[in-house]
Design a protein around this nucleic acid. Structure first.
Length: 752
DNA sequence: GTATTATCTAAGTCT
DNA sequence: TAGATAATAC
C-alpha cells in the first residue's frame, strides 16, 4: 500500500493527492486514467476516508469490477467491497430500491429493457389506433428517451411549445399522449426504464430534502469516470449530490466523447469549470500505451475536429512500425486478411490470441470476420450483438422470475401468459388489457379477481387464466423460502419451458436448452457467493447486465471482436479496425451534420488509440450489406491520416465458391427500384400532372433547384445533388426544419 | 385459438 | 438478410 505514489508521474500524482475540492482531470488516450482513479481512491482510503463515503461512477460494470479488483489488491477485500462503485444506472437503482416508497414505487420494481419499452409503446400505439407509419415504435422510443435524458418529463412536456410544434410537423400530434400513457403504464407495472433510473434519482434528490441531505452527507467524495459521456440528467444529479462538499473529481477526454446518441453532452466536460470556480484541473498528456506512430496518427486525425480542449498527447515510447492500410475486394476477403494476419503474427511473434482485437463500426460486420476466423481455427469471443440476457429463451425464464418478484410487471406477463401455449390467445390478452386500462388496475390484479370484472371471456378460457395465476402465486409463495437457484430451476421445470426446449432436438433448440442451463449455473454461482440469495436479490441487476459482465474463464485467451463503442477504455497489443468505408465509418446516418461527423471522427480516434503495438486498417470495395453487394469508397478518415505513418497494401482476392453474385449493379438497382415503387393503393398520377410522385427510373430527373415535398420533413428546395446512382444524395433546405442531406433511394420525394 | 406460411420493413452505436 | 407482422389453414 505504500509505494503506490511512486508509480505515478508528477501530474498524475498531483491529481491523486489533491483530494479536497473540485478536480477535473483531462486524460488523453492511454495516459493512465484508470490508474489515477484507482490510486486516488486508495489515497482517500489511506487518509482515513471511510469506503462507505466514496462514490465512484464508471461507464461500464466491467470497468467498476476491474477497478475494485485493483483496489482490493492494495487495501483488501473487506474495504474494497464497501465502496459505492458501479455505473450510474446500477448505483442509482440501488439507491432507488432503498428509497422506492418515497416515489410511490415498490422496492421490487422491475427495470424495463429496450425490448420491454418497445413492446409497451407498440401496444399503446395500437390501443390508440394510430397510424404506425407516422408513429414508428423506434422513433417514439428514441424521442422519449432523449426527452428524459434532457429532463423533460411527460408531465412538463406541455410547457415546451416548440417540441409540440415539431410533433405536429412530423405528423405525430398524439406524441404527448403516448408519452404520458407510457409513463403511466410503467408506473402501473411498477417498472422503470433505463432513463427512469436517472430521472427518478434526480426527482428523489429534488423533492425530498432529507434524502438529498442523507446522500450528500454519505458521499463525501465523488469520482466520475468518462465524464465526457454523461448526459444532462446525470449532470443534474451529480451537481446536487456534490453541492454540499464539492469533493468531486471528474475524469474524461473530450476527444473520446462518442455517446451523443444516448444524450451525452460534451458540454458537461467543456463547461465543468463554470460550476466550480475553485476547480483545479490537471491534464494527463503522456501516453504510455501506444507506439509513437500510433499516437501521432491519432493526433493528426483528431486535428480535423474544430471543437476540442487543447492538449498535446505525446509519448516516450519507441516509434514502432507503420500502420498498414489494406484495400480488399470484399468483406469476406477482409475477414480472410484479418484471420491470416493474426495467424502469421501469432506464430512469428509468439503472442497469444488475447493480444488481438478486431473492431468495427456496426455489429453486423462481425459475421464475415467470424467466418474467416472459424475457417482458420482461431478462437474468438464477441461482445455485444445479442446479449446473453436478451436471448428469447433466457428472457422467457427471466419473465417468469420477474413476474414472481413483481407480478404487476405487464411486459413479463404478456410474454409468458401463453408460453408455453396454454390456450390464452391474442383475443383474450387484448380483452384483459382493455379492462385493466379502463379500470386502471394491473393485469395481475385483474386475473386474480377475474369474476369481479366484466370482461367477456368465456368460462373455459377463464379457467385457464386462473390456472396460470395460481401457478405464479405458488412461485410467489415460494420466493421467500427458497434460494434463487432452487426457485429458478423449479420455475423452469414446472412452467414447461424446460420441457419445451428439451423436446426440440434441432441444433438451435439444443443450444437454447444449453443457454438455460448456463443461466441456472449463473444462478447457482450467485447463490453460493451471496448471503442474500433470494430470487429478488438476483433479479435486481439482471436488466443492467451485459455480455461483458459474464465473461467465462475459458474465454480468456481469445481474439476479441467488438464495436468501437464497446472498446472504449480497453487496450490491445494488436488492433484491426475494419470496414473503413464512406457511409459505414463514418456512418451514413452521421453524414448530415458537422457535429455528427466530428463524433464519428472521435470514434475512429478511440479505435486507433486502443492499439499498443500495431494497428491495421482495412476497407473493401464491395460489401455485402442489406442483402446486396454494394460498392464502397474508402473512408474520408483514411485520407486524413498523414501519409508518412502508413503503408498501403492490397489484399489478395479469393474466388468464392457458392456465394451470391459479385456486386451486380443492374440487379442491385432493380431492387432499389422495387423499393421506390409506390405501395398498393397508391394513387397513380399521370406523368406531367402537378405533383408526380417520383418512382423508379425517375431518380435521375431530380435536379438542383427543384421544389420537393418529403413525407416527414415537409416542403423544401434542393440545393445540391451529390453521389451517383445508388448513393445519390440531395441536400435539401426544408421550410420547417432547415437543411438536411437525404439519400434519394430512401427519401421518396415528391416534386412540386 | 394455434401453427404455419407469406409478406413487409428496416438497415447504428448502449445502459 | 432477418425479424416482425399479417394472412392462411387447420
Amino acid at each position: 500500500m505504500n509505494n503506490y505514489l511512486n508509480q505515478l508521474n508528477p501530474e498524475q500524482k498531483k491529481a491523486v493527492q489533491h483530494i479536497e475540492g473540485p478536480v477535473m482531470v483531462i486524460a488523453g488516450a492511454g495516459s493512465g486514467k484508470t490508474r489515477v482513479l484507482t490510486y486516488r481512491i486508495v489515497h482517500l482510503l489511506k487518509n482515513n476516508i471511510s469506503p462507505f463515503s466514496i462514490l465512484a461512477l464508471t461507464f461500464t460494470n466491467k470497468a467498476a469490477k476491474e477497478m475494485r479488483n485493483r483496489i482490493e489488491e492494495i487495501v483488501g477485500s473487506s474495504i474494497a467491497s464497501s465502496l459505492w462503485m458501479g455505473t450510474f444506472h446500477s448505483v442509482f437503482s440501488r439507491i432507488l430500491r432503498i428509497e422506492a416508497d418515497k416515489l410511490n414505487y415498490p422496492q421490487n420494481f422491475t427495470i424495463y429493457d429496450t425490448e420491454d419499452s418497445k413492446s409497451l409503446i407498440r401496444s399503446i400505439i395500437k390501443e390508440f389506433d394510430l397510424d404506425k407509419d407516422h408513429y414508428k415504435v423506434s422513433v417514439v422510443l428514441n424521442r422519449i428517451s432523449s426527452l428524459k435524458n434532457n429532463f423533460i418529463t411527460s408531465k412538463n412536456y406541455s410547457k415546451y411549445h416548440e417540441l409540440i410544434q415539431t410533433d405536429k410537423i412530423a405528423k405525430r400530434p398524439e406524441f404527448e399522449r403516448i408519452y404520458r400513457a407510457y409513463d403511466q403504464r410503467c408506473v402501473k407495472a411498477s417498472a422503470m426504464d433505463f432513463d427512469d433510473l436517472l430521472i427518478n434519482t434526480y426527482l428523489l434528490l429534488d423533492n425530498f430534502p432529507q434524502a438529498l441531505l442523507k446522500y450528500q452527507n454519505k458521499f463525501q467524495h465523488i469520482l466520475i469516470d468518462e465524464y465526457q459521456d454523461t448526459n444532462h440528467v446525470q449532470y443534474l444529479i451529480i451537481k446536487k449530490l456534490a453541492a454540499l462538499n464539492e469533493n468531486i473529481c471528474v475524469v474524461g477526454d473530450d476527444a473520446q466523447s462518442i455517446y451523443s446518441f444516448r444524450g451525452a453532452k460534451i458540454e458537461n466536460i467543456l463547461n465543468f469549470k463554470n460550476d466550480y470556480p475553485d476547480l483545479k484541473s490537471y491534464k494527463l498528456e503522456q501516453n504510455y500505451r501506444s507506439t509513437a506512430t500510433i499516437v501521432e496518427t491519432a493526433n493528426s486525425l483528431i486535428g480535423f475536429n474544430e471543437n476540442q480542449i487543447q492538449k498535446t498527447v505525446w509519448t516516450e515510447n519507441e516509434k514502432g512500425e507503420k500502420i498498414i492500410v489494406c484495400k480488399c475486394n470484399s468483406d469476406s476477403d477482409e475477414g480472410r486478411l484479418v484471420a491470416n494476419t493474426i495467424f502469421e503474427i501469432k506464430y512469428r511473434e509468439q503472442v497469444h490470441e488475447k493480444d488481438f482485437a478486431i473492431l468495427y463500426r456496426t455489429n453486423a460486420q462481425s459475421r464475415a470476420i467470424e467466418e474467416a476466423l472459424r475457417k482458420k481455427n482461431i478462437p474468438y469471443k464477441i461482445y455485444g450483438g445479442l446479449s446473453f440476457y436478451q436471448r428469447k429463451e433466457i428472457k422467457d425464464i427471466l419473465a417468469y422470475c420477474r413476474l414472481t418478484i413483481n407480478p404487476n410487471d405487464e411486459e413479463a406477463l404478456k410474454r409468458i401468459i401463453n408460453y408455453p401455449a396454454r390456450g390464452i390467445g391474442q383475443t383474450t390478452i387484448q380483452k384483459l388489457i382493455t379492462v385493466s386500462n379502463n379500470m386502471n388496475i394491473s393485469i395481475w390484479h385483474l386475473i386474480n379477481n377475474l369474476s369481479e370484472f366484466d370482461h367477456g371471456i368465456n368460462k373455459g378460457t377463464s379457467n385457464k387464466i386462473s390456472d396460470f395465476s395460481a401457478q405464479i402465486n405458488s412461485y410467489i409463495s415460494q420466493s421467500e423460502k427458497y434460494d434463487a437457484y432452487f426457485l429458478a430451476e423449479h420455475i423452469a421445470k414446472s412452467s414447461g419451458v424446460f420441457n419445451d426446449l428439451y423436446n426440440d432436438k434441432s441444433p438451435e433448440g439444443v443450444s437454447r436448452f444449453e443457454n438455460i442451463q448456463e443461466l441456472l449455473n449463473g444462478l447457482k454461482d450467485f447463490c453460493e457467493n451471496n448471503e442474500e440469495n433470494l430470487l429478488a436479490n438476483y433479479m435486481q441487476d439482471v436488466a443492467l447486465l451485459t455480455n461483458q459482465d459474464n465473461e467465462k474463464k475459458e474465454d480468456f485467451n481469445k481474439v476479441t471482436l467488438m464495436t468501437v463503442h464497446a472498446a472504449k477504455g480497453l487496450e490491445f497489443p494488436y488492433v484491426f479496425v475494419v470496414g473503413l468505408e464512406q457511409n459505414l465509418f463514418p456512418s451514413l446516418l452521421a453524414s448530415d451534420s458537422q457535429e455528427n461527423l466530428e463524433e464519428e471522427r472521435r470514434l475512429f480516434y478511440v479505435a486507433i488509440t486502443r492499439a499498443e503495438k500495431r494497428l491495421f486498417l482495412s476497407h473493401t470495395t464491395n460489401r455485402f450489406r442489406w442483402g446486396n453487394y454494394i460498392f464502397c469508397e474508402p473512408s474520408q478518415f483514411l485520407s486524413e491520416i498523414d501519409e508518412k505513418f502508413i503503408i498501403k497494401k492490397e489484399a489478395e482476392t479469393k474466388k468464392e465458391k457458392k456465394r451470391p453474385n459479385r456486386f451486380d449493379f443492374k440487379k442491385s438497382f432493380k431492387k432499389i427500384e422495387q423499393k421506390l415503387t409506390p405501395p398498393k393503393g397508391f394513387k397513380k398520377i399521370k406523368p406531367g400532372s402537378h405533383n408526380t410522385p417520383i418512382v423508379s427510373s425517375d431518380l435521375s430527373i431530380i435536379k438542383n433547384g427543384m421544389s420537393v415535398k418529403h413525407a416527414k420533413f415537409g416542403k423544401g428546395k434542393i440545393i445540391e445533388i451529390s453521389g451517383e446512382n445508388f448513393d445519390k444524395k440531395a441536400t435539401i433546405f426544408f421550410e420547417n426544419i432547415g437543411q438536411k442531406q437525404l439519400l434519394l433511394r430512401f427519401a421518396k420525394l415528391e416534386i412540386l
